[in-house]
């Protein structure tokens, strides 16, 4: 298997991140873990944006990934983190395969609102489910990795951070290849001209369906990792503001590169953390101005700063 420059760069950054994790304070590791896990969810949003669809309800799969990890340990004796994450992805794939049959019939705002509707239905079900802790959610059991149980606290934090970085690397490489592969490029072609795709003998609907299912699995992985990192899941994971956050990060990063969601998620996390720290009553306003600034000055997201630099373009 051959790796291109982007994949090698991603691997080097991932190694640097893992090493950085060993010397960083716990609070920073935790923030980075959550940011990177959310970036995986955003990768799912971005995959769909490339095909011309904006999901206002990606929280659905974030929540499914998180709850499956939590429920796996709580009710089914699945304590292995890798198995639980894989199960979360599998459940998300099954749900996406069912919902996708309906959702991929719709485009534009109809797709966006319908995806949001399914996410809010899950939120409503979880809020009414006493056995799952209702609005409080429930804690995730102690977990193991291939039989090894990390000590709680710093050890566990370090382990989940490493897992998140490695999962992020794997997904980034796969998505990088996916965007250059037949389905990735043709999904972009669907966004540009669905009629032409149809008259090339392809089904735009089934292409979008495949893309939707793949995006769901990636987002569920992000949800599962968040559950492992926080040790807790609650219905807020499926709430519309959570999905809005993912769109915010997607717009912040742009669609230009597979690394953009990771960078944007870290920037988002830093802006939000410091906004809450220094202006606790107006942090939402700071986020709003940040998004406004990006949309006005960098409509293709933060990654356009890098791509401009590469192409020698100056503003």
């Amino acid at each position: 298997m051959r790796f291109d420059k982007t994949e090698i760069s991603l691997a080097l950054v991932a190694i640097a991140c893992v090493l950085f994790g060993f010397v960083s304070p716990g609070w920073l590791i935790f923030l980075l873990t959550i940011a990177l896990a959310k970036a995986l969810v955003v990768q799912g949003v971005v995959m769909q944006m490339r095909s011309g669809l904006v999901s206002f309800g990606q929280g659905l799969f974030y929540c499914i990934g998180g709850y499956t990890v939590g429920m796996g340990g709580q009710f089914f004796g699945i304590h292995d983190a890798i198995a639980a994450l894989a199960l979360g992805m599998a459940v998300a794939i099954v749900v996406a395969m069912i919902l996708g049959l309906l959702l991929t019939r719709y485009r534009d705002i109809f797709f966006a609102m319908l995806s949001l509707a399914f996410s809010m239905i899950l939120f409503g079900i979880l809020v009414k489910s006493q056995g799952l802790g209702s609005t409080d959610g429930f804690n995730v059991h102690n977990w193991t990795v291939f039989g090894w149980a990390p000590e709680t606290g710093a050890d566990s934090q370090q382990t989940v951070f490493t897992m998140t970085v490695l999962a992020g690397l794997l997904i980034a490489v796969l998505i990088h290849r996916y965007t250059k592969a037949g389905i990735g490029v043709i999904c972009e072609a669907v966004r540009e001209n669905e009629v032409r795709v149809e008259y090339l003998g392809l089904s735009p609907r089934w292409l979008l369906y495949g893309n939707y299912v793949a995006a769901a699995s990636v987002s569920a992985l992000g949800g599962g990792l968040t559950a492992l990192a926080t040790g807790h899941v609650d219905p807020e994971m499926a709430y519309w503001t959570t999905s809005g956050e993912f769109i915010f990060i997607a717009l912040l990063g742009g669609l230009g590169h597979v690394a953009a969601p990771f960078i944007a998620a870290i920037v988002f996390s830093v802006v939000r953390t410091y906004s809450i720290e220094f202006v606790p009553n107006t942090w939402q306003m700071i986020l709003g101005f940040t998004l406004l600034g990006v949309i006005v000055f960098l409509p293709k997201g933060l990654w356009s700063l890098v791509s401009r630099e590469k192409s020698g373009e100056r503003t």
Binding site: A181, G182, I186, S203
Partner: peptide
């Protein structure tokens, strides 16, 4: 690519 197959590849470069 469309002419070659109605099911585009997930990972092979276009």
């Amino acid at each position: 690519a469309a002419a070659e197959s109605p099911r585009p590849s997930f990972l092979s470069p276009l």
